[in-house]
């Protein structure tokens, strides 16, 4: 069953630049998909449209049954609660501990304290950081900080995890650690993962579905694909 359906989508920014041209895609539930392409290929725009940071100029983007383009600003939270988002720059709160950073996602949606505790500890266990709950982000390595961000993204059991260049700031070894964490989340929790990257090595090693974009056009959509320039 498709979790995401994109039909005839075009995205044109106010400055006149078109980032996506006539895109058609269907992504199944539980899949792990890489979105690759060079700078300006439209990777980030595609990810941003999936979490409704950007609206398509034309066409339909349906995520988990919600038509993203038609979603009003004040209703965006309904979509965001169904997905987790991970960024290259982690976006953690430096004055809060690892536990508090992850719990923040649940506090914001009014979850009960006992449930928050259980879910946060489970998420931190899944990313291998259960022993760092009281640490502050600044005392952690880049890889660990990204794992905290992943824990925060999955703590609410989302159906979809969007990752925008999550390994962009990490060395190859730490990058592979992150990929292992993401792969295990995909397998253990059944979370659909869409990851924008330009890391050739990772894509080639993981052998997952690959969407290749070039200058805003879909060039290829392959099962067990590799990174092709």
């Amino acid at each position: 069953m498709d979790l995401i359906r994109i039909r005839n989508v075009e995205k044109k920014y106010k400055n006149g630049v078109t980032a996506i041209y006539d895109l058609n895609l269907a992504i199944e539930k539980g899949s792990f998909v890489f979105v690759i392409g060079g700078s300006g290929s439209g990777k980030s725009t595609l990810i941003k449209m999936l979490y409704r940071e950007e609206k398509p100029t034309k066409g339909q983007v349906i995520v988990g049954g919600l038509d993203v383009a038609k979603l009003k600003n004040k209703k965006v939270y309904k979509l965001r609660r169904k997905l987790g988002i991970v960024f290259q720059d982690y976006r953690l709160l430096p004055k809060q501990t690892v536990f508090e950073n992850v719990a923040f996602a649940l506090e914001c949606i009014g979850e009960r304290r006992d449930i928050i505790r259980t879910k946060v500890l489970k998420a931190l266990e899944d990313v291998g950081l259960k022993n760092k709950v009281h640490e502050y982000p600044d005392n952690l390595s880049g890889g660990e900080q990204q794992r905290v961000a992943i824990a925060r993204a999955i703590v609410n059991d989302p159906k979809l995890l969007l990752c925008d260049e999550p390994t962009g700031n990490l060395d190859p070894e730490k990058s592979m650690e992150i990929m292992k964490v993401l792969e295990s989340i995909n397998k253990m929790r059944g979370t659909t993962i869409i990851m924008a990257t330009h890391d050739k090595e990772i894509v080639n090693k993981m052998k997952k579905q690959v969407i290749t974009l070039k200058d805003g056009h879909l060039v290829k959509f392959k099962q067990k694909g590799t990174y092709v320039e």
Binding site: N73, Y77, R80, F104, I109
Partner: peptide, 16 residues
């Protein structure tokens, strides 16, 4: 600002 951005990303409603 940073906190508000994260709140928005994790699905906090406008009123929250």
């Amino acid at each position: 600002k940073r906190e508000i951005k994260i709140m928005r990303l994790v699905g906090a409603s406008n009123i929250t």
